[in-house]
Amino acid sequence: MTYKLILNGKTLKGETTTEAVDAATAEKVFKQYANDNGSDGEWTYDDATKTFTVTE
């Protein structure tokens, strides 16, 4: 399945997607991506749209 990440950071904004077997796997990928790019904030997940959002 395709999962989407929306970044609403102070310095990093945008979207990216990943293919993953489940939401937990996608979350690990996205959290590593956000960490690698210095983005940290409040995470939410919408199962209906398969979208993670991180807001700083």
Results as ranks from 00 to 15, higher is better:
M1W: 13
M1I: 14
M1K: 12
M1Q: 14
T2P: 04
T2C: 14
T2H: 07
T2V: 13
T2L: 13
T2K: 11
T2E: 08
Y3N: 04
Y3H: 04
Y3F: 13
Y3P: 04
Y3G: 04
Y3D: 04
K4Y: 14
K4T: 14
K4Q: 05
K4S: 05
K4I: 12
K4A: 03
K4D: 04
K4N: 05
L5R: 00
L5I: 03
L5Q: 01
L5Y: 02
L5D: 03
L5G: 02
L5W: 02
I6P: 01
I6D: 02
I6Q: 04
I6L: 06
I6C: 07
I6W: 03
I6H: 04
I6S: 03
I6V: 10
L7E: 02
L7M: 12
L7S: 04
L7C: 11
L7N: 02
L7K: 01
L7R: 02
N8M: 14
N8I: 15
N8G: 05
N8D: 08
N8E: 08
G9L: 15
G9N: 06
G9Y: 09
G9S: 08
G9A: 06
G9I: 09
G9C: 15
G9T: 15
K10P: 12
K10W: 09
K10I: 14
K10L: 14
K10F: 11
K10M: 11
K10A: 11
K10H: 11
T11A: 09
T11D: 11
T11S: 11
T11K: 12
T11P: 05
T11M: 10
L12N: 11
L12E: 09
L12H: 13
L12T: 12
L12F: 14
L12S: 11
L12K: 13
L12R: 11
L12G: 12
K13G: 06
K13T: 09
K13R: 11
K13C: 14
K13N: 09
K13V: 09
G14L: 15
G14N: 09
G14M: 14
E15G: 08
E15L: 09
E15H: 10
E15D: 05
E15I: 13
E15N: 06
E15F: 14
T16G: 04
T16A: 11
T16M: 15
T16V: 15
T16Q: 09
T16P: 02
T16R: 12
T17H: 08
T17A: 06
T17S: 10
T17R: 07
T17F: 13
T17C: 11
T17I: 07
T18G: 02
T18A: 07
T18N: 02
T18M: 09
T18K: 03
T18W: 06
T18P: 01
T18S: 04
T18C: 15
E19F: 15
E19R: 13
E19S: 10
E19L: 14
E19W: 15
E19D: 10
E19H: 12
E19V: 15
E19M: 13
E19G: 04
A20P: 01
A20L: 01
A20I: 01
A20V: 03
A20H: 02
A20F: 04
A20D: 01
A20R: 01
A20E: 03
V21Y: 11
V21D: 09
V21R: 10
V21Q: 11
V21E: 09
V21T: 11
D22N: 08
D22W: 01
D22C: 04
D22Q: 02
D22E: 03
D22I: 02
A23I: 09
A23Q: 10
A23R: 12
A23Y: 13
A23T: 07
A23V: 11
A23L: 08
A24T: 09
A24S: 09
A24Y: 09
T25G: 07
T25Q: 13
T25S: 13
T25A: 13
T25D: 07
T25K: 05
A26Q: 00
A26S: 00
A26E: 00
A26K: 00
A26L: 00
A26F: 01
E27W: 14
E27F: 15
E27H: 11
E27Q: 10
E27N: 04
E27S: 06
E27T: 03
K28Q: 11
K28C: 07
K28E: 08
K28H: 07
V29H: 10
V29A: 07
V29R: 08
V29S: 04
V29Q: 08
V29T: 10
V29P: 00
V29M: 09
V29N: 05
V29I: 14
V29D: 04
F30I: 00
F30T: 00
F30G: 00
F30L: 05
F30S: 00
F30R: 01
F30A: 00
F30D: 00
F30E: 01
F30C: 00
F30K: 00
K31L: 08
K31T: 04
K31R: 15
K31G: 02
Q32T: 07
Q32M: 08
Q32P: 01
Q32S: 07
Q32K: 13
Q32H: 06
Q32D: 06
Y33M: 05
Y33S: 01
Y33K: 02
Y33L: 06
A34F: 08
A34G: 01
A34M: 13
A34K: 02
A34E: 02
A34R: 02
N35C: 12
N35P: 03
N35V: 14
N35Y: 14
N35T: 12
N35D: 10
D36H: 08
D36R: 08
D36T: 09
D36S: 09
D36I: 11
N37P: 03
N37F: 15
N37M: 15
N37T: 10
G38E: 06
G38Q: 08
G38P: 02
G38F: 14
G38C: 10
S39A: 15
S39C: 15
D40R: 12
D40L: 12
D40N: 12
G41S: 04
G41L: 12
G41Q: 05
G41R: 04
G41T: 05
E42I: 14
E42H: 11
E42G: 05
E42W: 11
E42C: 12
W43H: 00
W43Q: 00
T44E: 08
T44A: 10
T44Q: 08
T44R: 07
Y45W: 03
Y45K: 00
Y45N: 00
Y45T: 00
Y45C: 00
Y45D: 00
Y45S: 00
D46N: 08
D46C: 10
D46F: 03
D46I: 04
D46G: 00
D46L: 03
D46S: 05
D47T: 07
D47Y: 07
D47R: 06
D47V: 08
D47Q: 09
D47K: 07
A48N: 10
A48Y: 09
A48K: 10
A48Q: 10
A48W: 07
A48V: 10
A48R: 10
A48M: 10
A48G: 07
T49C: 03
T49P: 00
T49D: 04
T49I: 05
T49H: 04
T49G: 03
T49L: 06
T49A: 05
T49N: 07
T49Y: 04
K50S: 05
K50T: 02
K50A: 05
K50G: 04
K50D: 01
K50R: 14
K50W: 05
K50N: 07
K50Q: 08
K50E: 02
K50F: 08
K50Y: 08
T51R: 02
T51F: 01
T51Y: 01
T51C: 02
F52H: 01
F52W: 06
F52P: 01
F52I: 01
F52A: 01
F52S: 01
T53F: 10
T53E: 04
T53H: 06
T53Q: 06
T53S: 05
T53L: 05
T53D: 02
V54Y: 11
V54F: 12
V54C: 08
V54I: 12
V54W: 11
T55L: 06
T55D: 06
T55K: 06
T55R: 05
T55N: 09
T55S: 09
E56C: 08
E56K: 06
E56G: 07
E56I: 12
